[in-house]
Simulated scan of single mutants.
Amino acid sequence: MPAPDSDVITRIIHGVYYVGQCSILAPVFIGFRRWHLLSSGMRAMLYCCLMWTVMSIVGEFCRHAFNYNVIVWQLVDVMEMWFIGGVYYYTLQFRFRRYFPLIGVLYTLFALVDMFVINDVLHGMQNGLFTGNNYTLVVKHILLVTIILLYFEQSLRHLRNVALERDPVFVISVALLVFYAGTLVLFLVRNNESITLKSYVLTIPVLTVLNFLLNSTLAWAFWLVGKKQKKVLEPAPPSHFA
C-alpha cells in the first residue's frame, strides 16, 4: 500500500487544527450573552478568549499572506499572562496578588530578552522574531500553574457548602491547569527545529483535543455565571426536642 502523500497529511492536520481553533467561539458567544452577570475576573477571562480568537485569525492570515506568524504567537504568550493574571488578581485574596502587575512587567521584559538576546546567542544571526521562545513558554506555564494552585489553596481554606463544579472560576481553573500542564511539552516540540512530520502529526491531534476540552469547559463556566449554585450540605432540620 503506497504511503500517503505528505501534502494530503498536512491538509488533514490543518483541517483538524482549524476545527479545534474554531471551538473558541463557543465561550466568546456565551460570555458576551452573559456579560451583565460577569465579575471582573470572569470579564478578564472573556477578554482573553476574545484575544485568542482575534490573534488566531491574524496568525492564520499572516501565515498565508507572508508565510510568517511567529511574532503573533509570541505576542499571545505575553498577553495570556496579563489576561489570565487578571482573572486571579480579582479572585485571589492573598496579599501576594498586589505583586501581580510587577510580575507581569518582569515577565514581559523577560520575553523581550528571550526574543532579542537569548535567541541571538543560541541561534547566531537568527533572532527571536523567527524562532520560538522556549524559555518564555516554560516561565509562562510555571507562573500560570503556580497562580492556579494558589487559587486551589484559597478554595480549600474557604470551603463553602456549594458544589465546586458549579463555581465558574473553579471550573476555569481546572480547565486552564489541564491545558497548560498538557501543552507545555507539545509547544516545546513545536518550536524544535528538528521536528519531523511524524512528530507533527502526533502533536496536532493532541493539541486539538486539549483545545476542545479547554474551550468547551470555558463555555460551561460562562454558562454557570448567574446560575443558582447547588448546596452540598443542607442545614439540619430543626429538632422537635429543642
Rank of each mutant, 00 (worst) to 15 (best):
36 H>M: 11
148 I>Y: 08
180 Y>G: 06
219 A>E: 00
220 W>Y: 15
119 N>F: 03
200 Y>W: 07
241 F>P: 05
101 P>G: 12
214 L>Y: 09
32 F>S: 00
125 M>D: 03
8 V>P: 02
122 L>W: 10
51 M>D: 10
133 N>K: 11
80 E>L: 12
60 E>G: 13
216 S>M: 08
94 F>H: 14
22 C>D: 02
118 I>K: 08
60 E>Q: 14
145 V>C: 12
91 T>I: 11
120 D>I: 04
98 R>K: 15
211 N>L: 13
118 I>W: 11
125 M>Q: 13
174 V>H: 04
26 A>I: 03
185 V>A: 01
207 L>M: 11
235 P>G: 04
199 S>F: 06
10 T>N: 04
117 V>G: 12
36 H>S: 03
30 I>H: 08
225 V>A: 00
240 H>I: 14
61 F>N: 06
229 Q>A: 02
182 G>C: 09
227 K>E: 13
101 P>C: 01
63 R>T: 15
5 D>H: 13
53 T>C: 03
233 L>I: 08
211 N>F: 14
168 P>M: 01
21 Q>G: 12
149 L>Q: 05
48 C>A: 15
162 V>Q: 00
6 S>Y: 12
111 A>F: 14
78 V>I: 11
11 R>K: 15
98 R>A: 12
190 R>I: 05
235 P>K: 08
147 I>K: 02
209 V>S: 13
106 L>K: 04
44 A>W: 07
235 P>I: 09
97 R>S: 02
127 N>S: 15
102 L>S: 15
65 A>C: 08
233 L>R: 08
78 V>D: 02
6 S>M: 06
142 I>V: 15
185 V>K: 01
208 T>P: 11
188 L>C: 10
220 W>G: 05
209 V>H: 10
188 L>N: 15
43 R>W: 04
73 W>F: 15
96 F>P: 11
126 Q>I: 15
15 G>K: 06
150 L>N: 15
70 V>H: 11
232 V>K: 14
186 L>E: 03
